[in-house]
Amino acid sequence: MLPLTYYLVISAILFVLGALGVLIRRNPLIIFMSVELMLNAANLAFVAFARSFDVLTGQIFVFFVIAVAAAEVAVGLALIVVIFRTKHSIDVDLMSSLKG
């Protein structure tokens, strides 16, 4: 079997790539996808640790993370739709004023 560290390395790489996506992309849809990627990276670390310590809690937590992610995506996409409807664009750099 493989050492825990391997999985953690993959998890870290994916997390950093996700963070980079959040920072350099202007399309909020892709920003969202990057956030999902980061969540996945964290989930991977959870499951790996759960396996390592032979406990179930890590998997349970991943289950809840998936549920929360689903909720977050639903609300986030709804927000994007609303923003698009008012601004006719979804570039986050255009949303720099406090007024709606």
Partner: peptide, 13 residues
């Protein structure tokens, strides 16, 4: 305080 979300995210990182 330039108002750009991404700048704030950069600051967080």
């Amino acid at each position: 305080q330039n108002g750009f979300v991404r700048s704030y995210a950069l600051a967080v990182l």
